[in-house]
Design a protein around this nucleic acid. Structure first.
Lengths: 248, 248
DNA sequence: CGGCCTCCTTGATGCAGATCAAAATAACAG
DNA sequence: CTGTTATTTTGATCTGCATCAAGGAGGCCG
């Protein structure tokens, strides 16, 4: 698994798959140049921990490819996932030294990193970066608050449906699928990771997925490959307002 | 209750109780002057809704005095509080037209408001405002994520203890209490509001408060006045790491 | 092929917290 | 002082999900 390190690492920012979504999205050519000079890439294998909570953080950065998770753990081992990091998502917090959460690569991950200090300095001089980071942070705050409703008030079945609809929606926006027809995607998470996200046990996750399958809300091939024949039906099961805020 | 509208509204920003904590905290005299020119105050009575989710937001602003809540409601009436707004907290999101959550005044509230458009323009020209807003948003994101752990993984008793310790800590930081000795404060929330925050029913909230009282973790006079004889004990009940991240 | 992982499913049972119900307390108007 | 309403407490019962316990199913390596 180690020989073929063929994760396509972009040579320069112009080719970067997250050029227009990441923290650099608003940058002009000269600003991009400044960022380019302090950036470096790092790869992580599936399962590897990127940062441990409490560790000193010497870099911040963006997920370029792959999926990582943000989790919090109590002393007795109870675990709650507090964020799912997808390509273009930002890791780290300017102005803080220690990581607040564990960051774990769920799949193989490539990150575009900046040493923290130079990045902070550059951010001070480059409003386009700070503006974009504010915008991204506000989006994350909204996502976190939406998740609070899921965790606090939804049933197990609704929680699963909510998670599936979020993954399905994101996947569609990435692949620019035609809005009609069934949605097909692969679960990027194990049952255990889903449980940690949803505040459930993995057994309950498994049971509810089986139930949604039995009821025809989803179909699955193998353990991970999912087909959603009717997305509105899924949203309904999630207890969401049926319009379901379409983001650009 | 209406005759005596004696909520101390500051005449100018220099006297403002939240001058050094709110979105204007970093502003220089000239920047403050610009803000001053577009600001206006609004008062809300306890129980009044400041903004309805989905409404067009024509202003943003800061809570000056009083307490408000941010809540989300499902069609069937299930409610989740997603934020507690204290003096200096910011309401509204630059770059968005519609409110995402209901904002309700829990006590009488005074807000320092800015019409959205002029504020956005000013923010574009004033990095100190944008920087401060980013900082505050990152803090809120951390708080939201901490709350996800509470909602997803803590028991009812731990949830109550977590809420009490947050309120106690905030209250202490406001009153600059000596760190030693018992902490005394008033609950700013009804049992129902606490339940909405914690993802519980009000009956469970009541029972757990009674249990914490019986076990000597807290004392209460009347329904709202609370004494915490041993704060570490309370933190322990909350399941938090005993150090409990002291913020400046 | 067979042993041994990891990941997932399914079943049986128990319990924390929800739900249903009623009564105690407090604030307030008349 | 008395009825009224909002808030809280407490009790009885129910239930959704956790917990405990066994197997499957697939991938990998010898």
């Amino acid at each position: 698994m180690l020989d073929e390190k063929s994760q396509a690492i972009p040579r320069d920012c112009g080719d970067c798959p997250i050029r227009h979504r990441a923290v650099c999205a608003r940058c002009e050519a000269d600003e991009l140049e400044s960022l380019d000079q302090i950036k470096y890439y790092r790869s992580f294998e599936a399962g590897q921990t990127v940062i441990w909570a409490g560790d000193k953080m010497e870099f911040v950065g963006s997920v370029v490819t792959g999926i990582a998770t943000l989790t919090q753990t109590m002393e007795d081992g109870r675990t709650q996932m507090v964020g799912l990091l997808l390509p273009s998502d930002f890791v780290g917090r300017p102005g803080r030294d220690e990581a607040a959460y564990d960051v774990v690569a769920t799949s193989d991950v490539v990150m575009c990193c900046f040493r923290k200090k130079p990045f902070e300095d550059l951010m001070g001089r480059t409003p386009h970066i700070a503006q974009r980071l504010l915008e991204m942070t506000l989006d994350e705050l909204d996502a976190a608050r939406e998740w609070m409703l899921v965790l606090g008030r939804k049933t197990a079945r609704e929680k699963i449906a909510s998670l599936l609809s979020i993954i399905a929606r994101r996947d569609a926006s990435l692949k620019l699928t035609k809005p009609a027809g069934p949605m097909v995607f692969d679960l990027p998470l194990t049952r255990e990771a889903m449980a940690d996200y949803l505040g459930l046990t993995l057994e309950t996750v498994s049971r509810q997925i089986s139930a949604l399958k039995k009821d025809g809300v989803i179909q699955l091939e193998g353990k991970r490959h999912i087909t959603v024949p009717d997305f509105d039906r899924l949203l309904d099961e999630a207890g969401d307002d049926s319009d379901g805020g379409m983001l650009a």
